[in-house]
Design a binder for these strands. Structure first.
Length: 311
RNA sequence: CGCGGGAUAGAGCAGUCAGGCAGCUCGCCAGGCCCAUAACCUGGAGGUCGGGGGUUCAAAUCCCCCUCCCGCAA
């Protein structure tokens, strides 16, 4: 059995953790995950998804260092690390210091949610949909000192469905990664697989997303905006301001609209709420969520908020 | 005690400030009209106004307490 340490935090990592745990070839010696964090309106201290899953799987050795250079943690990992064959990192959320890379016998491995070197960075899933890519996938790579630049063990492709949201693709890639991770890692550790260096000249990059990135910019075309709504659902979500109130856009459809309206102007077309974009395009608001309200169809939104019609 | 919005018919909302017949746009049911309808016309059913207490001749509306939902922020 290969001895592993698993580093992960969010839901994306859970299927991978589960797959390794349930595979007979590996032993999970411990978990490193982020500290419990205050979450939601009442700032309830909430454990990360990986911690919850680890407990379910009966893994008791769980480390949650706030900083990786913390004395106690460093001592712990330097003690256990060299006895491990490998570490596996899946959406852990912290950059590993170089001294950690040398600890396990055969290195540290990562599941990344894109076909590297395309979409290096922290939001590859949203980036792929936003860019209109028709294919994406997961990459199993060996971590080196540079972010997402390590040699590739395996890439598993999948088509992006035409209406697929970021959340849906996230879940599919999490599972896809989990199905290929155990045998890929085992093959490498068995010395049956030679990693390939990435072609850095083909690299593209994505940045970390915040809620502010979800503000719809009506100077773009409706097609771009519709892709953004799709890519950013449910995180970080997309929104705009209508009649001085914030309106989340959950689902939207782009269409051609020849009348000249200033970008950002709300109007009603075929009984549905729309907003003018640029280049003769407009976005139909299929499903929205006004602040303080639950999500509702565009139809329902119009029925109540008829001030939309004034514009 | 982080800031804020909300709960009224099956859905989305107005009415609350300033107490006085429970409303609007839809949906639903029945009928009519039409070559036709997600159109139009007529009629109808459907409400403990989130819950509890208080003030009042009278409370969706004013006062106190509680529950639940949501936006922001972190």
């Amino acid at each position: 059995m290969y001895k592993l340490l698993f580093l992960g935090t969010s839901a994306f990592a859970v299927p991978s953790l589960r797959a390794l745990k349930e595979d007979g070839r590996f032993e999970i010696a411990g978990i490193i995950t982020q500290p419990d964090k205050p979450v939601g309106r009442h700032a309830t201290l909430t454990p990360p998804a990986v911690k919850v899953a680890a407990k379910e799987l009966g893994i008791s050795e769980i480390q949650q260092p706030a900083k990786l250079k913390e004395e106690d943690f460093k001592k712990w990992v330097e003690d256990i690390g060299p006895s491990c064959d490998a570490f596996v990192v899946v959406s852990y959320g912290k950059i590993l210091p170089s001294w950690m890379l040398e600890l396990p016998k055969h290195g540290i491995f990562n599941v990344h949610g894109s076909l590297l070197p395309r979409w290096r960075g922290p939001s590859p899933i949203q980036a792929a949909i936003l860019a209109g890519d028709d294919r994406t996938g997961v990459t199993i790579m060996k971590i080196n000192e540079k972010m997402d630049e390590g040699p590739i063990l395996l890439e598993e492709q999948t088509a992006i469905h035409p209406d697929e949201t970021g959340g849906e693709l996230h879940d599919r890639l999490a599972n896809l990664g989990a199905t290929v991770l155990p045998h890929t890692l085992a093959a490498y550790l068995d010395e049956k697989l030679e990693p390939k260096e990435q072609n850095g000249s083909k690299a593209t990059y994505c940045k970390i997303l915040t809620r502010n990135d979800g503000r719809l910019d009506w100077a773009k075309t409706a097609d771009e905006l519709a892709r953004m709504v799709r890519a950013y659902h449910p995180w970080p979500g997309t929104w705009t301001i209508v009649n001085e109130t914030r309106l989340k856009v959950v689902k939207a459809r782009a269409f051609q609209y020849e009348k000249l309206l200033k970008p950002g102007t709300p109007f009603v077309h075929d009984g549905l709420p729309c907003i003018a974009a640029t280049s003769g395009t407009a976005l139909e608001l299929v499903e929205v969520q006004p602040e303080g309200k639950k999500a509702m169809s565009g139809n329902e939104f119009l029925r109540g908020m008829r001030s939309f019609l004034r514009n």
